[in-house]
Amino acid sequence: MRIAFFGSSLVSSYWNGAATYYRGLLKALAALGQEITFYEPDAFDRQRHRDIPDPDWARVVVYPATEDGWRHAIEEATRGADLIVKASGVGVFDEALDLAIVDLASARLMTIYWDVDAPATLESMAADNNHHLRLAIARYDLVLTYGGGDPVVQTYRKFGARQCVPIYNAVDPDTHHPVTPRPDYAGDLSFLGNRLPDREARVEEFFLRPAQMLPKRRFLLGGAGWESKPVPANVTIAGHVGSGAHNAFFCSGSATLNINRESMARFGFSPPTRIFEAAGAGACILTDAWDGIDEFLAPDQEILLVKSAEDVVRTIETLTPERARRIGEAARRHVLDQHTYIQRAAQVMKVMNLATNGKEAAE
């Protein structure tokens, strides 16, 4: 199958948290015999902050971030594809792309809307009766999501989606694995995530406030946008951490913290890429509590749950190196056994084949 995929970026993780999700899934789909072309706009300086060269398992087309640019990209994709995927959060001309691609659906060409931030998308649709996806989503052959579980599935179905299936984050063992620690990433607790409006208050509660309460401990804050954020003296701001340094970031400290964005925490069942990346590297992970975590990792045995700044403080104060190592190793074994991208890709192929068969039967 020839798949044209319109997303934010495959080659750059700069202001692009979905990059490793795209890479893991599309690399695995290519390994299963699919022909991948990834279309991404030349926007937000991502091409100047590439993490990887064009991979050998996908063709990458970078188009100008203009109306002519996306129109020409769609024209090219239409000529050669059996399936066109529009991911959410491309960043420029999203609404125009959403509407233009759904118009391409035909007996020959299948269309998929792939939502990498479903809780936020659904909340914006619920708040706006004129949201363009309220009419468009029912015309896509299939909706796939980054996560969200039954709450996201049921809400998308209420908006008219023919079928909605969560395809969760996972681990690519070739990419996410233990490495030699780096002294500049050492510390008692690290956090990696870009500074975003619906994340910042939770970073203040689960990361910066514990740092204030533990002035003798070392904290490391990675991700774009934090340079102007006032932080306690014991917090080191690492700035943007390219995907090639993620393993070292997770391996070098005593523990690493996952903080879900507010909308994802409300919906639950939305494990972000960072959890699987950190688990693949064998890190001891703390996560803010959200519904569904036990479907991916076992609390207290493979991941540690925290519900407040005080929980973070207590966990850091009592966490021994031996326990941290034991938790990290258990998490790594679990994700390598049950949560790999090749397993997710097999799920995608099954869902797409079912959707294709159903479409042919209806026609």
Rank of each mutant, 00 (worst) to 15 (best):
E322C: 01
R274Y: 04
E310N: 09
A289G: 10
R344L: 01
N258Q: 10
L336D: 05
Q343F: 00
H339K: 01
A361H: 13
G282C: 02
I285S: 11
E317S: 12
V351D: 05
K350Q: 14
V335R: 07
S308H: 07
V335S: 10
D337K: 13
R261C: 02
P299A: 02
M352Y: 04
C284V: 00
T287R: 04
R326N: 09
D288F: 01
G328Q: 02
T320A: 06
N357H: 12
R261L: 09
I275D: 11
F276C: 05
P299I: 01
T287S: 15
A361S: 13
G358R: 11
D294C: 06
T318P: 00
S263Y: 09
I316L: 14
I259E: 06
L304M: 13
D300S: 13
E277N: 08
A331S: 15
R325N: 09
R323T: 10
D311T: 00
A309W: 08
M349V: 14
D291E: 15
N353H: 13
N353M: 11
G292D: 07
S270A: 14
L336V: 12
F276D: 07
T315V: 12
D288H: 03
A309Y: 03
L319P: 06
A298N: 12
T356A: 15
A281F: 05
I327K: 02
A331N: 02
D291F: 06
Q338R: 15
A330C: 04
I285Q: 10
L336C: 11
V312L: 00
E277W: 07
V335K: 08
V306F: 08
L297P: 02
A361N: 10
F296P: 02
Q347R: 11
V312C: 02
Q343P: 02
V351T: 10
M349R: 14
R325K: 13
A279F: 06
N353F: 08
D291K: 12
F276E: 08
A283L: 03
F269I: 00
M349E: 15
R266F: 05
L305V: 12
P271V: 00
S308D: 07
I275W: 11
E322I: 07
P321I: 00
D300Q: 11
R326A: 15
I285A: 02
S308M: 03
R266D: 09
V348C: 10
R323M: 08
Q301C: 11
